[in-house]
Design a protein around this nucleic acid. Sequence first.
RNA 1: GCCACCGUAGCUCAGAUGGCAGAGCACCUCACUCGUAAUGAGGAUGUCGGCGGUUCGAUUCCGCCCGGUGGCUCCA
Length: 645
Amino acid sequence: MEKNITIHLKGSASVAVSSQGLSGLKALQALGIDNTENLAAVKINGEIKDVSTEIDSSAKLEPVYVDSQEGLQILRHSAAHVMAEAVKALFPGVKVTIGPAIKDGFYYDFDYKRPFDANDLPKIESKMAEIIRKDLPFIRSEVPSDEAIEFFKSQGETYKVELIEDLSEEVVSIYKQGNFTDLCRGPHLPSTGKIRAFHLTHVAGAYWRGDETKAMLSRIYGIAFADQESLNTYLENLEEAKKRDHRKLGPELDLFSIQDDVGPGLILWHPKGGTIRTIIEDFWRQEHYKAGYDIVYSPHIGRAKLWQTSGHLDYYQENMYSPMDIEGQEFYIKPMNCPFHITIYRSRIRSYRELPLRWAEMGTVYRYERSGVLHGLLRVRGFTQDDAHIFCRPDQIEDEILNCLDLTLHLLRSFGFYEYEVMLSVRDPERKKKYIGNDEMWEMAEGSLVNALERRELSYRREEGEAVFYGPKIDIKIKDALGRAWQCTTIQFDFTLPERFNMTFIGKDGQEHRPYMVHRALLGSLERFFGILIEHYGAAFPVWLAPVQVIILTITDRNIPYGEDLLKILSDTGVRAEKDFRNQKLSFKVREAQTKKIPYMVIIGDKEMETGNVTVRLRDGHNLPPMPPTELIDRIKNEVKLKSA
RNA sequence: GCCACCGUAGCUCAGAUGGCAGAGCACCUCACUCGUAAUGAGGAUGUCGGCGGUUCGAUUCCGCCCGGUGGCUCCA
């Protein structure tokens, strides 16, 4: 029915138009948008819709372009549909399942008589290119569920039937392009031709609905952009990430290794990695003392009864290794440090006057991880947590959380991480019974986490239902030099362990009270953090962390005595220096030092011997003017202090 | 654990229809004494991931296992 309506362009003018045959596209054109070539969709009153959507009442509009965040998601989702069409055309009998856009591209899961492999991808790509060239429109329609079920049944698409049945909607939307019809909420691009650059990246197995008891499907991953240049940039970034891969750089630079002889997921820290780890640990300890922590140590194994009391044997056993028999008694290797710290707490009666207690330990724990999930230093079976437990009175909790946040931000910044993603995980309000502890405790705990975050003006995402059963938590992910996010920090309330271990303190009133307990790891684990550091810096560590800060390169054998003197001067002042006095060309030695990413190359020849100076080459290729050794030492000391460069 | 792919010298990689396994770099020796990313010559290097099977003969074919990579799932 025709009527006169008013449409507004967000942040701009409005016009009166007739609603007769008014699509989103026409409405945008009426509002003076002429860049329709790059339109992915349109936001109507804030809701993202196809540009073909009919507008029948006054509305606020906003164009969504293919190169915007939201536009890209749509483009990739549409690319998934195109891929599905291509696969169906090439492999008769294949069944389609689901195919969404994801953070970094898109995928589609297929059920076929054989899994797809990398050799199939070029064929699929050229078929997709063909479909894209045809510039087929995506046509949306809404059909009653039973009709849709009949349709997909007739196509043999049993997974789609299952999806519609589970939706239990009266009407579902379907999208058709070319010969391919898919159940889909949309929105989609106006037509396939808008996908101007795409690439199928890899194949993988994936369970139907992520459930390992269900069918194993064959998943194809791809990436798509609105233009070729963006795709090229993306592929270049992948290359860059590959160059920084800690699994490659670590062994190459002799930092660490993982070897078959020892076992998967178990890390050998080589001397250079060990040097870095020592620096991290020393710094960590120093900052923890400053923040009012005490350091404790605990053993690697403990009696079965301890793990029974803590609940680990009931709730965590699948992550624990089999018990070992010691003189007829069972002991377990620890997957966590908490029971030990609690046992220290319980070694005598505690007064409210001594709280809060903050006990930190670089505690090495062992957890069973399924072989398929192991990944370099980032996911291992034995790792050292920078763990601590805080035991405090309820009235102290907010300051304690704040203290944790301040310490973690200070540490992370010192290591060169300035961007974070903060998540606050709270109870699922619908299923409170799932969790231990009463409402009052949860509200108090959550309130203290929120207050601390707000007092430090940290923006965070609230995640309902993501809390562990024993308490709410804050998780922090850091962003590295390539913008990738890595989980490190976790600050968790624990309502269950104080109960289980019957922990108490004597209050002002002379009565026993239950302490609050917070479990926190700030860097997460040393292994993972080291892996992240390697990738963040591409193993070109800042001077304070560099395992070798200076290498002395001689030009001829005549310079060796001066080189030895220099080495001694540097080493005596605490500079980590090495020598390369081999009878080789300078350029040869420079090249080698460069590949080792050593920050300072000190070059000494006859000139330097005469003047008593050093010539310094930086790893970025620049030279410093000749200077006396003391000046170099001051420079290094200063950089170590500032943790810069 | 499951699905796909992969495993040849310390590293990067060739190789053969089943018949004594190769290159470059690294390593060792010698010569060169040299000024900012590779000096030259020579030498040594392997249970061809492991075990079993087929075969006159297996690194190659088959089976099982171990390990790695990308995912699923899970997580510091």
